[in-house]
Design a protein around this nucleic acid. Structure first.
Lengths: 353, 353
DNA sequence: CTAATTAATGCAATCCTTTGCACAAAATAT
DNA sequence: ATATTTTGTGCAAAGGATTGCATTAATTAG
């Protein structure tokens, strides 16, 4: 079906080696006569020759492919990350293969298996989290790898992510400054890097403000919108409901919006909302969402640069980079009066005792 | 670095063939003794063996990879399509490689080149449009191919897309029923299948209602949000601005929302808005967007089924499938009084003469 | 006890490309 | 005219896996 170097060789009467050299050896290391060159090129075009990347990769032990794994392609945050990574990689002459682990660590494992079988030259992984033994194996096997967004503090691997703790601090501090004391946190998948660090930021902010932590207000179990929907409904049913909700991801916030709409709760009138992640559509939502933005382009740029460096210098020391988040204040948070605050605090105390 | 069948063979003292058969021949066509099997499997595990997909693909002339090309990964519509395709493919034991053509036909071409070099078993393409000579070549080369969403009427290739004309009719009819006569259309990339068919639906609806077409109200040149933003600003500056806008894609609608917000135009108070594509967040926008929904899951399901069939039966007749769109009425369209209508019509007439 | 099966494994070709080394012919130097 | 260098090209191995055919040893049949 598809033609090979051999076909061209037969057609032009030269050897396969010569054909290969004409078509791919940009170096003039081998001196092929002008005449042969044109004859071969001509034949290649006529016959519609296309190099076989499998054979080449096999021979060269290099594929110019990078594997990318994210927990959810359809999540605007990750699709933006992929898009940025793709641009960076293309510039450097690399292609990429994306896998969607669907927030499932078993799929993540099998994705890694597939990619390694394909002999990709490197990996960029936004891990589901929870466990890192499989990632550790990749590193130990000496395969270039960088983790983005979702990484592991305890694992010594190149990584670039946003300072999640700081992002949460920014968000919760803002709520506190606006007079909120009863602030709920709807988390993503527990045990996950992104989640634990964001939770930590939430707790620190409350602690720093002298607000005691109410475990009832920490709910949720994954990054999907349905989680936001369900948990918001639960929070609203509390005897002493929160005056503000901080969600760990954009999709969760969408679920919260849906629940509020159904229950005729006005945001920010009745409830303030702030979320981690700042997708393109955040400012067009009703109301425009106050959100913590992550520097996606920067993240992709650095990830590729780090991967590139790791491929060149396998023995460099590994680095973990933390980028600065940014709080974009829009209109989903309202100031509440200090009178209310005091009542709130008293209420909280009462429950606590 | 990574181990091969040969390593295992040496370690266990059997031949490479035997190792291969133990590890991959699920058929019991060759009878390998239980003892050898366990010895080989054991060694493979110890040594961390991993098949080389390049070598296997080369030998088998089959890679179990499907190439996917879309114009914009970050567009929620396409990322949803990819996600659905991915699920379908995985079920059938296929992997996939995604490329983002960035709405650029040159990148699309080079993506196709790359994928064919990798010897993918089939292709799913949402083409940029404009030209199809490169697609025709794939078909003529006998490579299994199905087009989704963006296809070509004039090209005989398996394809599945939504009935765009009907979708536009649904949208514009709805506007007309709500009393609108001055309806603008902000298009996507001209020359594109999706765009031309949607435009056609828009025109037919107006024609059927006896409303003359005002070329001033047909604007726009790509599917990005910036296009929506710019063109909305222009439309608003018209002496006789539209009372409703119909946008050819979700991102365009986002741009329109932004422009309206900046100009203090209330939707649907001052202007009604309806869009093609219905992303998850459409119902949470301000206002909740009335939108034409495409059956994405169905589309992916059928695309994979068709591709699968084409791989099995290369000579079957090719089919073009059109799926039904659905209008989701929310709150971005308002009814306008017939008095206004008449004035509007008169104004239009005046300009026309 | 010989002939015919069956069980268990190995040989070697094939898939396609790349590249170090060898070699013949032509050009240049001595 | 001989020795040396340069040009232009081919040979063959390597990269890893698969599989039809061949082969040997062990069983079973007759």
């Amino acid at each position: 079906m598809s033609s090979t170097l051999k076909d061209i060789a037969e057609k032009t009467g030269v050897s396969v080696s010569t054909v290969s050299r004409v078509l791919h050896d940009n170096t003039k290391k081998y001196k092929i006569s002008e005449e042969t060159q044109t004859r071969v090129k001509q034949a290649a075009k006529e016959i519609g020759y296309r190099v076989n990347a499998l054979a080449r990769g096999l021979r060269l032990q290099k594929t110019y492919e990078i594997g990318i794994i994210v927990p959810d392609i359809a999540n605007p945050f990750f699709s933006a990350v992929i898009k940025s990574l793709a641009g960076e990689l293309r510039q450097r002459g690399y292609n990429f293969i994306v896998y969607d682990s669907d927030e499932d660590i078993a799929i993540e494992r099998s994705a890694i298996k597939s990619l390694l079988e394909k002999r990709v030259d490197g990996l960029v992984i936004a891990s589901v989290g929870q466990d890192y033994s499989h990632i550790q194996k990749i590193r130990d096997a000496g395969i270039p790898l960088v983790m983005v967004d979702r990484c592991f503090d305890a694992l010594d691997v190149d990584s670039v992510s946003v300072d999640n703790v700081k992002g949460s601090l920014l968000a919760v501090d803002h709520l506190i400054k606006e007079g909120h004391h009863r602030i709920a946190f709807i988390q993503g998948l527990p045990g996950t890097y992104a989640n634990e660090t964001r939770l930590q930021g939430y707790k620190s902010a409350l602690y720093a403000a002298g607000i005691s932590i109410d475990e009832q207000l920490i709910v949720g179990d994954d990054f999907r919108s349905h989680n936001g929907y369900l948990k918001t409904k639960m929070l609203l049913k509390l005897l002493d409901p929160p005056t503000a909700i901080f969600t760990a991801g954009d999709l969760i916030a969408l679920g919260t919006l849906e629940a509020c709409r159904e229950n005729n709760i006005s945001i920010p009138g009745d409830l303030s909302l702030i979320t981690f992640d700042d997708p393109d559509f955040a400012s067009y939502l009703s109301p425009a969402l106050t959100a913590v933005e992550q520097p996606i382009t920067k993240m992709a740029e650095m990830a590729v640069a780090m991967l590139y460096n790791r491929m060149k210098n396998p023995d460099d020391e590994r680095t973990k980079i933390l980028l600065e988040p940014k709080l974009n204040i829009r209109s989903s948070v309202t100031r509440i009066s200090s009178v209310t605050n005091i009542t709130q605090i008293m209420k909280t105390e009462t429950i606590k005792e």
